[in-house]
Nucleic acid binder design. Structure first.
Lengths: 372, 372
DNA sequence: GTCTCGTGCTGAAAGGTTTTAGCACTGGCG
DNA sequence: CGCCAGTGCTAAAACCTTTCAGCACGAGAC
């Protein structure tokens, strides 16, 4: 059916609420035009019972109605443009065909919005709606959002976070399905996370393979973030991957710049320091793209060119990575894929507890030059 | 109440659906622990009728219950941790306390996610939930989303778009409240748009006031976008503002670069062309920040510095505008404020048809140098 | 003593769906 | 003929809320 065929026909108000919906004057006569048709209307028009209509329209197996009856019901439903009333169905069934997405600020900031894309994608495939709430990291807001969702009897909950951290969630109703994306919580067994160890390893190898073992610098070492799961549970793994690659190759970086917040200006400052120190740097592992962006600004100011003089590899595949000249080689944070995974896990009938890692694919672009 | 107090107590399943919810073993005895309490449970505990409970809990004016009765009901509700069943209420009331947000790709791309922030902000204040759907510009998806929302009996609809264009929407049920944000539709009378004329004027004046009248270039003239409302209904106004300022000052640009798609590489190419043409350019009006970013890359490659040699002003206040060195002076696209406005208009009881313009504030940063 | 009115409260219907239990009929078998 | 099984269909309950209509009772007016 097409929604566009619904129009209000009178402006009458009954019981303080408008009820006057109906079909555009169309080919079918004898239809009550004052309100949305119900099962009873379809039943009347088909000359059968509500039970029969419900059975047929939901084609329940085992209900043995004559082919004629089935045809009449379908015809009547089509003619009346019947759509079931979601509230009534929810009331009866105890489920709503709706899931909730609660995050700190995934939806409302630009960084991880691809996560929503993934979520909505799968939800849509499964004819499921998504209710959204953001907490801005306030426990009060979280409690409120949760209460709202539970009251609406959502069929499941997805918890998301901007940075992959440990979340403090209240205990959920035990029958409530839930998945965390880009975060973990002791109260939710199923979690979807980016495969950071692999990414750390891949990024580092990319520079090592290009021959930068002798002049490698790390821009953005973050010991605090590494050790505090409330800041991140995955940064640690990213560094583990980096170190595994270095260890394997027997390489020690010529410089390691430490700072916890990864914004362009920090990358700029840190890289400036490295350059001023005179360390013989030929390759930069920047801990994210914004840091890499700042690093490049510092290099440019020094008259150094990427990748001719210094190569850069990085993490995230932020918008900025593709705007840079040269475009940045970086390990992509797979937000969309994580969103898809989460929704699939949530909607799947069986449980799938545990950590589900999603690969961070290396986007190889032009910021690395092979040496000699 | 706190949601965390709900836990499943048995794993029993009735009618094929789990119903076993209850209070954590707490201070109150004699409460049925097997399911969410209903009005009837509260009534029983308070020794009154369902009617009385409903009346009191919704504190309907004109219902004259004794102070004692009111107290008993509140107490019982609190003890049982009663929360009304949203589906039942919707069924009865015909409204849901939920609005729908349908857009092409506002939620799922990074550009306009602040719009959602504004929407959710206000929705939250008004205890309203938000159902989200994205159409990716497919009419099929749009119809599906609309149908879904109408079926769920949302109390209103917000239509959003990434670029401020004319939308083709099916006729809505006439009683359905609706607002468009950053887009317009003949079927929806209330629209929220950015105040582009004012922004065009302000940006241009900023360069003129700094003395760049003699060396002004426009990077990103877009005649097609200007004249096709399906691409944009506001770009036109942006140019009108620019031209009004120029006309007023009696200024003719020394160069006008035309291209319809405003990505960094286009800005880069266009600026390169201008520089190669030898036009005596001292100030660039870039039609968005990404174009400005590309322009700066071209300038830098030519050994020209911003703002020392060339000044830049731009539109949008994209992420990138604040990352650039120097940070970019730009007229902010007020997505968040537009979102707030839209939700306020939607939730307001009276209608407010017409166009609601939201100011685009000029973010004055360091990319403009006053000429001697 | 009857009527009227105000007070405090309640029964029952309505909203639209799903599902259980079961009715009425036919045909086949013993 | 009696019984059983199968076929085609339906009545009614249940889900939980809101609200209309109205009951019972006591006080005051006439």
């Amino acid at each position: 059916m097409s929604v566009s065929r619904w129009v209000r026909v009178t402006t009458g108000v009954a019981n303080g609420r408008p009820t006057a919906y109906g079909l555009l004057s169309g080919p079918h006569e004898g239809v009550d035009v004052t309100k949305r048709p119900t099962l009873a209307d379809v039943a009347a028009r088909a000359g059968l019972s509500k039970t029969a209509v419900s059975l047929v329209l939901n084609d329940r197996p085992g209900s043995r109605l004559s082919a004629d009856a089935v045809a009449r019901i379908h015809e009547a439903a089509r003619e009346l443009n019947y759509r079931p009333n979601a509230a009534a169905r929810s009331l009866r069934l105890g489920r709503t065909g709706t899931v909730g997405f609660i995050s700190d600020e995934v939806t409302i900031t630009r960084f991880a919005s691809a996560m929503i894309r993934g979520l909505l994608d799968i939800a849509d495939e499964q004819e499921t709606g998504v209710l959204i709430a953001e907490t801005g990291n306030h426990p009060k807001q979280l409690a409120k959002a949760l209460e709202f969702m539970v009251d609406r009897q959502v069929d499941g909950l997805v918890f998301g976070a901007l940075t992959a951290r440990l979340l403090e969630l209240p205990t959920l109703p035990e029958s409530m399905r839930a998945v965390t994306v880009n975060c973990v919580s002791p109260t939710v067994p199923t979690a979807v996370l980016p495969s950071e160890e692999q990414a750390g390893y891949a990024v580092t190898r990319q520079l090592l393979d290009a021959g930068h073992g002798a002049g490698l610098a790390i821009i953005g070492n973050a010991p605090v973030a590494q050790s505090d799961p409330h800041i991140s549970v995955t940064i640690d793994r990213r560094f583990n991957g980096i170190h595994r690659a270095l260890l394997e190759a027997g390489v020690t970086p010529v410089a390691v710049e430490e700072f916890e917040i990864w914004e362009p200006w920090h990358g700029y400052d840190a890289t400036k320091r490295v350059l001023e120190s005179g360390a013989p740097v030929t390759g930069l592992i920047c801990l994210n793209d914004r840091v890499a962006f700042g690093a490049q600004q510092a290099l440019t100011e020094r008259g150094l060119r990427v990748p001719d003089d210094v190569s850069i590899a990085s993490f995230d595949d932020d918008e900025i990575a593709s705007y840079m000249r040269p475009a940045l080689t970086t390990a992509r944070l797979p937000y969309e894929e994580m969103g898809r995974q989460a929704m699939e896990l949530l909607l799947r009938p069986e449980d799938s507890p545990g950590e589900h890692l999603v690969e961070m694919p290396l986007q190889v672009r032009e910021s690395i030059r092979p040496l000699g």
